[in-house]
Amino acid sequence: MAINNNYTSCFAEYIQGMISARAALGYAEEPYAAALHSFDRYCSDSYPECNELTERLVMSWVLKDNDDTKGVQGRARAIRLLAQYMNLSGQEAYVLPDRYFGNPKPKEVYMFTDAELSRLFSAIDALPESSRVPHSHLMLPVMFRLIYTCGLRPQEGRELHRRNINFQTGEILITNTKKKKERFVVMSDDMFALCRRYDKMRQFFYEDNRYFFPGSADGPIDGAWLNRQFQKCWKSANPDIPKENLPHVRIYSLRHRFASANLNRWMDGQKDLTAMLPRLRAYMGHYTLAETAYYIHLLPENLVKNKGVDWDAFSGIIPEVEPWQD
């Protein structure tokens, strides 16, 4: 097994092996790379001769900054994965109990009303060009509409490559996805026409950039900057509401609205949700059906009580998902 030269401790082979195994299963390295590098340096400096993942070693590293709760939880998750991999590889290792992980704080889910959504997009359309991102006033109205109408995760829209758009059929290959699960989505006719018009303008100012929404000469729009623009538009769309009373929204809220709008439309059309949910799951790129079924929790009360829907059919899958898992 090839060993990454960046790892120097006695556990280098297992760290690299775990990362390679997870990559083969479609998982990214980033969530645990920093913690594992920290563990590797810690072992090299403090336990250079130790070749067993003992409870003493694990606890001394995990709790080395015990006042940093977030850091403790991050180290705990990383070292637990490493120990599990080592055990599966035939090397005995101490597996940290899951009580050190804590409970992630649920993310607030906000569902836009029709009026709020209309005001929000009016504010987006009125954004001036940013000195930091040239031609942003042309890009952002298209990007936010694409995220909404196709139910994309924010980074899937922000990091979309132009080559992944079929300008003949309106199909988009989504590649930068959660858990590396690629999928195709198809734009509506209106969205397709908007993207084609935007692309004709885009070719004049960023012809050589691979991203459909360029933020620099060779990269996409910065995520933090994009979120600030979104928050600015949300505030502008609700000028009569004090900032401290304004509901918290995220760009991700557009994806939530997409899911609930589809469910509402199907229910209005008396569609069988048990048959339609797998389609929505595939379109949105959810890993499990439970992630998709979670959106039923967000439907208005009068729809949830709709007698034409067999809600008991979902009782086994809806509770499986918490808001933070999407």
Rank of each mutant, 00 (worst) to 15 (best):
A237V: 01
D125F: 01
K178F: 00
D240W: 05
W234Y: 11
D65I: 02
R183W: 11
D272C: 14
P128Y: 03
H286T: 09
E13A: 10
L63P: 05
S236V: 11
F204A: 15
N245V: 03
K243Y: 00
I318W: 01
R56D: 02
R132G: 03
W266T: 09
A293D: 00
P31H: 09
P220M: 07
Q229V: 01
Q84G: 07
A35E: 06
P106Y: 05
S260N: 09
R279P: 00
D326R: 11
D67E: 15
Y47Q: 14
Y287V: 14
Y110H: 01
N66W: 15
S9F: 09
N306P: 06
P141D: 04
V72M: 10
L63C: 06
K181M: 07
A115R: 01
E30R: 14
Y252L: 13
T69P: 00
M276L: 15
E244I: 11
L194V: 07
I172T: 02
P128R: 14
A24V: 12
Y198I: 01
M284Y: 01
Q155F: 06
R22G: 14
I296K: 13
G102V: 08
P319K: 10
V133A: 06
G90S: 05
I3M: 12
P141M: 01
S188G: 07
K243Q: 04
W324E: 07
G269T: 12
G308V: 13
Y283D: 05
L280R: 02
A290Q: 10
F144W: 11
M18P: 03
L303I: 03
S122V: 15
